[in-house]
Design a protein around this nucleic acid. Sequence first.
RNA 1: GGUCCCAUCGUCUAGCCCGGUCUAGGACAUCGCCUUUUCACGGCGGUAACUGGGGUUCGAAUCCCCAUGGGACUACCA
Length: 480
Amino acid sequence: MSVRVRFAPSPTGYLHIGGARTALYNWLYARAVGGTFVLRIEDTDLERSKREYEELQKEDLKWLGIIHDEGPDKPNPKYGPYRQSERLDIYMKYALDLIEKDLAYYDFTTGEELEAIKAENEAEGVHTHYQGKWKNPGMKTEALAKIAAGEKPAIRFRAPMKAFALNDKVKGEVVYPADMVGDFVIIRSSGLPVYNYCCVVDDMLMEITHVIRGEDHLNNTVRQLMLYEAFKYTPPVFAHVSLLIGQDRQKLSKRHGATSVHLYKDEHYMPEAMCNYLTLLGWSHPEEKDIFTKEEIVPMFGLERFSSHSAIYDLVKFKYVNGQHLRKLTNAELVAQLNTIIPAGHAFHAQATAWKEQCVELLKQKVDFITEMQPMMDDMIFDENVEMTDELKDILSWETTPKIVSYIAAEVAKIEGFASEAQLNVWSEHAKKELGIKGKPLFMGLRAALTGKGHGPDLKFLIPLTPVSVLKKRAAKLGA
RNA sequence: GGUCCCAUCGUCUAGCCCGGUCUAGGACAUCGCCUUUUCACGGCGGUAACUGGGGUUCGAAUCCCCAUGGGACUACCA
């Protein structure tokens, strides 16, 4: 039987980093074993679910390159529909079947009554295996009569009083004691099904073979195991991966900063870098490699190398990973991106393609994010101002520096466009032979005279990229 | 409170299942050096961890128990 995995987000907000990570693990596993990756939309919470969020999440997934094989937009008639809100009749049919077999029952207990029972139990410190007031099979006729009269009951599943065991691919053997959960609602009085129930019905009907999801579902699994047993269906293989947490070791949430994928997309983080970083937060490469594309990981990927403890989501290493992926891009690719990122009207757009490629070649050695390129270029190439830093003052105070400054000012006045590397060599030779300057004062003096700064990239790369008009303005300011 | 899960450098982790090869390896960060007559990139090196206590064993990071700490779940949310 071929492997089928799924990612089942709730469209109640943007795609979360943790969600992206589980989606990625599922995708990786499907690709690794030649299986099918299904996207299912868990929108039974009508209040919070919005179709626009579904679209937004799909966009984020697409941006990451996590493409599903089946889903609302790629239905397989055998398994669809893929939105739980469109499967309501299916859930009801199976629930009625459970009632028929006396594995579930109608329950008219109201929310307030339930609260009261719970409060009472808590006060007495007793731990009870809750069973609805309507648990007695003999009460079914009465229940039916109430329904006929227009009352709306919930449907409650009869939780068997026995221990369940799970052999989880990540956590190993997990045993759930017999009294862990009481009878639980599978269909709300509104007629809408509850997560733990539709999850099972769907995974069963969609023939999901492996469930890779967050550890926060580990305790839910016992309810699902009960339902699988009631349906006489072999449960899928479970792999509960550890959670992502913040610096304070709490579950990752908005107060930890940017936790939505789209924020990173907007900031022009690289999707490959994000996948790379996220993969490593809880999974390790057999050869301890740490920079890779997700396609490179596919042949290595399996359920065996997950770590069992939660991982702190920390941007510092992400930054490094992004830098590594950035440097793997060709200059043409970087230019193409900068063309869209840098605002219209910026001097960058006026330059020739060759100039742009040389520019990114220089810049990519200095930054981890593509968004850092423009500010850096503004500062190093297009900045006409001269800021009197201590470092610059120091260089300017050297005996020979003023000579170079005035020489360069006179020289740049003679040319237009860009100064070539050869031109730079001529200036340097002149300063050496005619002005009698050498060593550090020569090179630093030249740098100061040309850039108005004490440090920066190699002059032979930087000067041919700097418009002479800018050099002239700097020279004028230095002379003043 | 109850149930379940987890515990190796500051962080991500390797090693753990199948005890000795671990004076615990890698990566990020940090510090130093080299390279670059500057900066960055790159290269080399340093600092830095088996939560504690018992047990089993000739021998424990590795197996068992307890403690402590952290987390998750405990809904007619997902």
